[in-house]
Nucleic acid binder design. Structure first.
Lengths: 195, 195
DNA sequence: TCGAAAATTTATCAAATGATAAAAACTATA
DNA sequence: TATAGTTTTTATCATTTGATAAATTTTCGA
C-alpha cells in the first residue's frame, strides 16, 4: 500500500453531496479528514481477521470483498470506480473482520476513518443522512441478492450477473465470479460451455 | 386487519430509545404518530405488488416476509415480538413491493408511516441515527446470510437456523423454513430425517 | 521470446437437491 | 368425534453441482 497526498477528494465529496445536503463547513471538514491510498493489483486492502477502520471510495480500480474457508474462497461483492464501500460489521463493531478486501487491479482509494466519520455524523446531521442512505443502498442490494440466491440456480444467476454487470465481466476472473455465485470454477466453466 | 387505539406505544419507543438518544419532545411526537394494528393468523400485512408505507414494530405475534413465483414461495425473513421491520426497498422507493408480509400468528403491530418518519428524521437527528442503526443491523444480518448461503449446503444452514433460533422452530412450519433455506419442503423433510 | 505458473476447459463419477406421486400424520371444524 | 383439508414423510427418478484429475490455454516474468 502506498499513501499519497494528491487531492482527488472531490470525487468522494461529490458522491456524498449527491446523497445529502452537505453544508460548506461539513464538506471542508470532511475533505480534511480524507486520505488517498493506492494498492497494487493483488494487494490486500484488509486482511481477514483485521479490523476495518475505514469507509472507502474508489477513485480508480476494482476490488473484491470476500472470505475463504479451508477449501474455497467466496466473494461477497465487487466494487469499481465511483463506488463507496466498507466491511460493515467489522467497521461498526470494530471487531476482527470475517471478510477480506483485495485489489483486483491497481486501485486508488479515498478513505475516512471510523473515528472521524463518527465525529462528522454526530456534528452534521446530513453526514448521518449520507451514511444512512449508503447503508440503505447496500441493504436493498443484498435483499435482491438473497432473493435471487433463494430462487435461481447458478446458471440463471450467472446470466443475471452478465446482464446487470456488462462492464465488469472482462475485468473479473472466472474463479472470482464463481466465488460470487457460490459454485466452483469448474462448475462455472461447465455452465459457460452451455452443457 | 383490525385497528386499535390502545397505547402500547411504549415498547416501540423503548426500542428506539435503546438505539439513540431520543429527546423528550421527539419521543412525544413519535408517540403521537404511532398506530397499533392487529392481524389474524394468515392475514396479509402487505400484499406482493403493494407499496410498503410503514415501519412496523411487533408487540406480539410472528410474521414472515417473502415472495412467490409460479412454482414456489421463498422467505426472506421471520420477525417476532420486539423486532422492527419493513420492506426496505419498497418503503424507500415507494414502488410496488416484490415481497409480501404475512402474519404467521395473530399479531399486534405498532407502525409509523414513511411520511411521518421522514418528518421526524429530518427534524430530529437522533431519529435519523435510529433509522441508520436499524438499517445497519439489517445489513449485518444479510451479510452473514449471504456468506452462509455461499458457503454452506442446505443441511448445514438448517442446523445453523435451529441453533440460532431455538425459540422459533416450534412456531414455523416446515414449508416456511424450507422457503427460508431456499429448498423444497420435501428436501427439508429428507434433511430432517437424516438420510 | 521462452518457459513456468496460473487459469480455464473437459471428462468422469459422486453427492445434493428438485419433481412428482403416494402414503401417513396432523389440524380444524361441522 | 368424524371427516375433509393440510402438512409432513417416504420413495423414485432426473437435474444440478461438487470432487478430482488431466488436458489445454493464457499470463507473465526471466
Amino acid at each position: 500500500m502506498e499513501m499519497e497526498r494528491y487531492k482527488s477528494n472531490r470525487d468522494f465529496i461529490g458522491f456524498v453531496s449527491g446523497l445529502c445536503a452537505l453544508e460548506k463547513d461539513a464538506a471542508a471538514l470532511l475533505s480534511q479528514q480524507l486520505e488517498t491510498v493506492s494498492f497494487k493489483k493483488g494487494e490486500a486492502i484488509l486482511e481477514q481477521g483485521s479490523i476495518c477502520r475505514y469507509v472507502y471510495y474508489i477513485n480508480s480500480g476494482l476490488v473484491k470483498t470476500g472470505f475463504e474457508n479451508k477449501e474455497r474462497t467466496f466473494i461477497m461483492r465487487f466494487f469499481a470506480e465511483g463506488a463507496t464501500f466498507t466491511v460493515l460489521d467489522s467497521y461498526l463493531s470494530q471487531n476482527p473482520s470475517a471478510y477480506k478486501i483485495e485489489a483486483l487491479e491497481n486501485t486508488v482509494l479515498t478513505r475516512i476513518s471510523r473515528t472521524e466519520m463518527d465525529k462528522l455524523c454526530f456534528r452534521f446531521h446530513p453526514m448521518e443522512t449520507f451514511f444512512r442512505k449508503l447503508v440503505s443502498m447496500a441493504s436493498v442490494n443484498m435483499m435482491s441478492r438473497i432473493g435471487e440466491m433463494l430462487e435461481e440456480k447458478a446458471a440463471a444467476r450467472y446470466e443475471n450477473f452478465l446482464r446487470e454487470n456488462p462492464g465488469l465481466i472482462q475485468r473479473i476472473s472466472l474463479g472470482d465470479l464463481a466465488g460470487y455465485l457460490g459454485i466452483t470454477q469448474v462448475s462455472l466453466s461447465r455452465i459457460r460451455s452451455g452443457i
